[in-house]
Design a protein around this nucleic acid. Sequence first.
DNA 1: AGTTGGCACTCAGTAGTGACGAGTGCCAGA
DNA 2: TCTGGCACTCGTCACTACTGAGTGCCAACT
Lengths: 344, 344
Amino acid sequence: MQEDRRLAVLRAIVEDYVATEEPVGSKALVERHGLGVSPATVRNDMAVLEDEGYITQPHTSAGRVPTDKGYRLFVDRLSTVKPMTGAEKRAISSFLDGAVDLDDVVTRSVRLLSQLTRQVAVVQYPTLSRSTVRHVELVALSPTRLLAVLILSTGRVEQRLVELPAELSEDALADLRSQVLQAATGQVIADAVRRLREAVPESPGPGPDRDDGVTRAVVETLADAMEDHRSDERIAVGGAANLARYGDSFDSAVRPLLEALEEHVVLLKLLGEATVGGTVTVRIGAEGPYEELASTSVVATGYGPRDEALATLGIVGPTRMDYPGTMSAVRAVARYVSRILDEG
Amino acid sequence: MQEDRRLAVLRAIVEDYVATEEPVGSKALVERHGLGVSPATVRNDMAVLEDEGYITQPHTSAGRVPTDKGYRLFVDRLSTVKPMTGAEKRAISSFLDGAVDLDDVVTRSVRLLSQLTRQVAVVQYPTLSRSTVRHVELVALSPTRLLAVLILSTGRVEQRLVELPAELSEDALADLRSQVLQAATGQVIADAVRRLREAVPESPGPGPDRDDGVTRAVVETLADAMEDHRSDERIAVGGAANLARYGDSFDSAVRPLLEALEEHVVLLKLLGEATVGGTVTVRIGAEGPYEELASTSVVATGYGPRDEALATLGIVGPTRMDYPGTMSAVRAVARYVSRILDEG
DNA sequence: AGTTGGCACTCAGTAGTGACGAGTGCCAGA
DNA sequence: TCTGGCACTCGTCACTACTGAGTGCCAACT
């Protein structure tokens, strides 16, 4: 019961903060949202939320601000999808329908997406080169060091040294090797990356077979090596002018972002593996692999003809962002683009 | 005599201001540069320079800051070329020598240029499409209105209406037409633009045949139409992260620049016509056609094999910029790239 | 004529101050 | 479990005074 209200409070905080860009206090909160309780009650809830790490105060006696964890909860459980208006839908389709060829589709998508979301848009060109994983080998060099060898159908070989966070027995290694082979062999790179990540036990539960992050270390190294091989894939970036809206927090936020936008390899990693079918991936703040981009979020999804996730598109923006609106815009554009590819 | 010193003062002001980013006062000036006179004298000189429009003060009782006109004079007459150091030369050549194909050359050039100058670098891909001007027609609609028709070898036709700033007689029109035809017919677009501009009488001297800017209006319209047809040419941009150094004056300067960087047509116009043979073109502040970019300058030059100006490269930066260093960097990179194209 | 020192003046920037108010945490009572 | 009240914190704002860099101008000097 109170749990519900606490979540409502969190939701209200996120919404207000996103709208006003200012820490939000208990009084303002009860006024602007119709929660039927007093500010004092809200304060108690806030204290709990802060303990649990969903919000913080920039300084004592200021309002509260959502943390990454708070945004995460909001995105996962609290936000309701904000459907596109009819006008927006029409704008999208008319804007994209004029495209003459694939390049034009991508160019227009990038522009459209950046205008809809007022963020920096990133669209990966649908890749036609579909190199697959031929083989993966894991060789134990010592109980805590492993050599991972990746062989692609193009004949390219990539090897990486993995420093393990814990010892790995022969048996466990054999186990891991077969799991990895099972997941990756024969797959297109993008799929291999996704399947590998899915194969990782989310939380290595306690017990005799806990692996202390060994699996994770191996999988991430492999995924990393694979994603390096997507670097020849082309990318279009648009709406960088929206960065000018960042206003404060400048050098800290915009500079690394601008750098990332030029490093297409980095961008590809940020966009992550393509997910398809209406699922929009959200990466919030420090969840990503780059700590310089701790104050930015990525909203992305896969697209492609016949619901085949050929490529990824999405936006990069500040963590303080209208997630529902952005997510639905990204999803809508991905759908329309997919449909166009279907027809073409 | 005093004239010389005044120029020395201007030069010192520009150098100091570029270095410190702060308005420079008379006292600091005599201290830091060895002009053998007193601050009072310098003040008198400054007053004159301000009257002539070379410098201004941001507010009363502040130091002086160069105006666009001041920078112009500095660039044209006061600055000495700052030759590249041996280390820099070696860095350039080793960086570019590793390039494997044309795309790689361009990509590397952009990166190199942005690192050398710490500005945003722009490199136009050498154009292989060489459409030429087949014909130009000027039709008088009224004494002050003219229809300019441009026919390209590709068969494309472009027409523009020109509003003349003064009346144009039949004779003068015939004259102008033949001049224009002479300059443009059969030329590659880039060359046609340059030749046209060269054919414009720089200052329409007084006398019976002064043309009150009529020629200029016509030529600029034609050049504009031609440059629109370069829009299919590709461009590489790099070093946008250097924009983060702008620090203050943000929305006013960076936003329009970011927008321009995405509009490749605009960029091509900014780069302007290719000049070759060590000549570096500098466009300062409001001299350019875009008033939103009033606080930015462009330093560019042409490049290409066999001193044939195939394409343009350069940088875009704040008017407050180290012109000598930037110009020599741009020139050096252009030379090396040209040489590489020569060999390839 | 050109240069110099002196002097009064301007004005942006920098504390320092005090009032204000938004916001919090906590507690006693409903 | 919620609410009202209260004391407390602390950033923000407006105001003040001060400082100092810099100017313009003038009279004197070379």
